[in-house]
Amino acid sequence: MMITKIYSPAETKKAAEEIKLGELIAFPTETVYGLGADATNEQAVKRVYLAKGRPSDNPLIVTVSSPEMAAEYIADYGQYGEKLIKAFWPGPLTLVFKIKPGSLSPVVTGGLSTAAFRMPENETTRKMIAQAGVPIVGPSANSSGKPSPTTAQHVFHDMEGKIAGILDDGPTAVGVESTIVDLSTSEPAILRPGGIISEQIEKTIGLSVDSDQHKVGANETPKAPGMKYKHYAPAAQVLIVRPNDWKQALAWAGSQSENIGIMAPSQILKGSLPANVLPYDMGNDLASATHRLFDGLRYFDNEQKVNWILACSFEEKGLGAAYMNRLKKSSGGTYFEPQD
């Protein structure tokens, strides 16, 4: 088993050297930690799938240090690509473009003629990529299907001994993955909601954007991550709790013979809780809950080992669309249903 090193933000050159040697390095972004490998090295990219246990038809995001680096591979920006790049790069926005034939391996693209590109806001990671001199693939640095990592410690838990190193730049800020917009067709579409909300996209391009293309069929190859397979799921079964159902949900939890995990807003946790309820505070608002979502799921996976987690829901508007997208995937769309 290899030793997984921890690199500080001052050691980006060392991490970049590992990338150039074909090794895997986890890296920070403003959303979640990614798992990086030289996107032009097919063997290195294959090792990303192996490290994560990820299906090989699930394409990988190509992470770049600059728009100029992405331009080496993009064949067609479409009508809106340059506007969105100017408005939101660097930042939590991934864009799917048609690529130049043969410019990226099918191992990266899932065999498609398109690829997803992202330029993260995190300066440490952009510096590492620039020093490596190549774009890197950047799926989340977790075991496939599990909650995404928002700290270097989360990455170490899943990837120790599987990768060469982790570039540690502290906890991420947003807490859920980037918004993905498909620009490879005549009509732009949001393939995955994230920190850049649909209203921001629409205001920038002056066009209504389809926001309901988050899934693909069993025999289809997805254009972007998170569209086909179960994602973000802890070992426990997650039950989504609607705002008006917390009283009955807590009563149900208290009636169980085992400990029950609760991921709830601060005001819910201020009351008297049943003795067997293990709380995780999601904060006072949607932004806080989104930031803490994956950490909460991992808390109950790695530290408390419960079989059931009750998790708060929010209205599916703005950032709430991203939060609920991840929560529904982690729960399999299962809600707590009060008994009459």
Results as ranks from 00 to 15, higher is better:
Asn284Ala: 09
Gln304Arg: 15
Ile260His: 02
Val96His: 06
Val96Met: 12
Glu72Arg: 14
Ala75Lys: 13
Val32Cys: 08
Arg118Thr: 14
Gln43Asp: 15
Ile6Asp: 13
Asn325Val: 02
Ile166Cys: 00
Asn122Trp: 02
Tyr77Val: 07
Ala132Ile: 01
Pro67His: 08
Ala235Asn: 07
Arg326His: 01
Tyr33Trp: 13
Leu319Arg: 11
Ala235Met: 05
Gly195Glu: 02
Thr334Arg: 12
Leu319Ala: 09
Asp285Arg: 15
Asn307Ile: 12
Asp76Gln: 13
Ile3Gly: 04
His157Ile: 12
Tyr33Ser: 01
Met1Arg: 07
Asp340Asn: 12
Ala224Lys: 06
Ala51Val: 00
Ser8Met: 09
Pro279Ile: 06
Val238Asn: 00
Val134Cys: 13
Ala116His: 05
Pro92Ser: 07
Lys329Phe: 04
Gly34Glu: 00
Ser103Leu: 15
Asp182Gln: 05
Pro222Ala: 03
Tyr80Cys: 01
Gly102Asn: 03
Ser313Phe: 14
Ala141His: 12
Pro106Tyr: 06
His214Gly: 03
Lys230Leu: 09
Lys247Phe: 14
Tyr49Leu: 01
Asp210Ala: 10
Lys247Cys: 06
Ala116Phe: 05
Phe294Cys: 04
Ile309Asn: 00
Leu183Val: 07
Ile74Phe: 13
Glu42Leu: 02
Gly36Val: 00
